[in-house]
Design a protein around this nucleic acid. Structure first.
Length: 550
RNA sequence: GCGCUUGUAGCUCAGUAGGAUAGAGCACCAGAUUCCUAAUCUGGGGGUCGUAGGUUCGAUUCCUGCCAAGCGCGCCA
């Protein structure tokens, strides 16, 4: 119905001045939940500058030329807002209004979590995981064919250090005197070392471990941790469609072509950047391949190869994203931690150099602090105070976990208050929302027979109907902006209006859903069903099942 | 030092393609239950929107300086 209102407004404005080119999307209409009215638009304020007319005069003109049967009153208020008051019968129209939902069936690849495969998932990964999954649900809601992808960085230094740490443990526990250093610490490394030892007993009979054997061991260890992570994620309701390994991207040998392509476009040169951080001794004169990312506004040019000729992480990452692009997705979305903010410029530069038409975007998730007993828990790898994701999900439950990870805007810092989350009352929004669903369900279950009777249009009922109607706006906005918190906030507000209506019937039995004989009016039934539908859709996108009974 | 993000009520945070008296929850105070789930609801106090300027009919929102917090600043990944 908001769309209809927009069209009527457009029509009215055309009548005033047919030379105005006003797009329907330029007309802003929002809902009011107070005595000012039901809908409002600021279009007169917006157009006043363009038309060089006073907003109040313009608003009057708009009203004069406006035609619609749904409103009993339209008035100008404040500096030039136009406020609309719906007729009573229009509220029921509003309730049963079936908006045709925007649909786009193009393919989208959403890559998230993608943690280094050298340790278990912890709290920091949890936010990206849920935001990525919920965003995937949101895109599916609008018809997209979504691939949830998990990327495993199984090459590079970190892998060597990881392997070395495992072998160091095996060596020291079994007195093997193998020449490996310790880099990673923690219980999980010891457990993993023991598993590797059991699995590769034969290898450790000799004093020397070949490169091939090392590879076998590290691949086993990585595979073990990856499957553990996937398992943890499944425990939070996330199922990936694809797991990609850096090594298999390397095997595709895309990089030489990519560098050639960049060369052709003049974005690559051979040369030297500053010395590496750990560089000692005389200046090396090896030249490396460098991408001219400053051309795209980056602070400095970025290395594509290292001193020893091997590709950098960045180079392989370009190849990985080109690979995703080649797989035919019309859109690539990455979920990254805020510590990668500075990395975006160089990757998007490289991608737009190669494929100017690429639709690539990154959603950033800021860090999450854990709060317990009103104190922020400092987390540090060194202190061994890392909170593993498994533990968290176990402690607070999957629903709370998923809801609270979507509770705050993704790019702001967030405190996760464990004590609040575990509360089972209105302080906990997800509990509050679920309770409202259970209340609505109890009415439907109690209903004896359906009768034909008009509902009493109280203020609370009108507000609830309007709020339900707002859902289409909210979910679309959330999708357009890649912001999942809009959904959780909406659901909380919606539930609040339901509870208000419910309580208003305490003092006024006239407006209860059920009469003395537990008869339910058809209108009330359709309201309750619509309420449940919207809640189910919203909760569904968050990956939470509504509760029928509590 | 440079870059990015953030600064809104005592606390946790919404709101910002410039718009009405800046919102919600918690905490605090006062109320509501013979009645569909009180696991809830109603009302109240509480703000120089970090700060100083600028842009204009109008700025929490845009621009600039400053202050404070977080993150990043490898031929690591």
């Amino acid at each position: 119905m908001l769309d209809q209102l927009k069209y009527s407004l457009q029509e009215s404005i055309q009548k005033i001045d047919s030379s105005i080119e006003l797009l329907i999307d330029d007309i802003e209409v929002s809902l009011l939940f107070d005595e000012k009215g039901d809908f409002t638009t600021n279009i007169a304020l917006k157009l006043s500058k363009l038309l060089k007319q006073k907003p109040l005069d313009l608003a009057q003109l708009v009203i004069k030329n406006f035609s619609s049967k749904d409103f009993e009153k339209i008035e100008v208020a404040g500096p030039g807002f136009i406020n609309f008051f719906l007729k009573d019968q229009s509220f029921l129209k509003l309730l049963n209004y079936e908006q045709k939902r925007f649909q786009d069936q193009s393919t989208v690849n959403i890559e998230f979590v993608s943690a280094n495969p050298t340790g278990p998932l912890h709290l920091a990964h949890g936010r990206g995981a849920i935001v990525g999954d919920v965003l995937s649900n949101l895109y599916q809601f609008f018809g997209h064919n979504v691939t949830r992808e998990y990327y495993v960085n199984n090459t590079g230094n970190q892998i060597n250090e990881f392997l070395s740490s495992i072998l160091y443990h095996i060596s020291s526990i079994h007195n093997l005197a193998l020449p490996y250093k310790q880099f990673y610490k923690g219980d999980y490394i010891q457990d993993l070392a023991e598993k590797c030892f059991e699995n590769f007993k034969d290898i450790f009979k000799s004093k020397l471990i070949s490169k091939e054997q090392e590879l076998k061991i590290v691949n086993y260890a990585i595979e073990y941790l990856v499957s553990l992570s996937i398992q943890t994620l499944e425990g939070s309701g996330i199922v990936f469609d694809q797991v990609s390994y850096e090594t298999s991207i390397v095997e595709k040998k895309l990089l030489p072509e990519i560098i050639k392509e960049l060369e052709k476009k003049g974005f690559v040169y051979r040369g030297q950047l500053h010395n590496p951080k750990d560089f000692q001794g005389t200046k090396k004169d090896n030249e490396i391949t460098i991408f001219k990312s400053t051309h795209f506004g980056d602070d400095e040019d970025r290395a594509l190869t290292k001193n020893d000729g091997t590709p950098t992480y960045f180079a392989n990452d370009i190849a990985y994203h080109v690979d995703k692009h080649k797989r035919g997705y019309s859109r690539l979305i990455n979920i990254w931690g805020a510590d990668h903010l500075g990395y975006l410029k160089r990757l998007s530069s490289a991608l737009s150099a190669l494929h100017p038409d690429i639709n690539f975007s990154v959603v950033f998730c800021q860090i999450v602090n854990l709060k317990r007993n009103n104190e922020i828990q400092k987390m540090s790898k060194r202190e061994g105070t890392i909170f593993e994701l498994d533990q968290l999900v176990n402690e607070i439950g999957i629903e709370n976990y998923r809801y609270f990870m979507c509770y705050r805007k993704n790019d702001t810092h967030m405190d996760l208050d464990i004590d609040l989350i575990k509360k089972e009352n209105k302080e906990n929004p997800i509990y509050y929302i679920q309770y409202s669903f259970a209340r609505s369900q109890s009415v439907l279950e109690r209903a004896n027979k359906l009768i034909n009777k008009n509902m009493d249009l109280s203020l609370e009922l009108k507000n609830l109907i309007k709020k339900i109607h707002e859902w289409d706006l909210v979910v679309f906005n959330s999708y357009k902006r890649n912001e999942v918190h809009l959904i959780s906030h909406y659901l909380e507000n919606l539930a609040s209006m339901f509870h208000s209506l419910w309580s208003s019937a305490k003092s006024n039995p006239q407006i209860r859903f059920l009469d003395e004989d537990n008869n339910l009016s058809e209108e009330a039934q359709s309201l309750l069903k619509k309420y449940q539908l919207v809640l189910s859709e919203g909760l569904g996108i968050l990956g939470i099942k509504p509760k029928l009974k509590m």
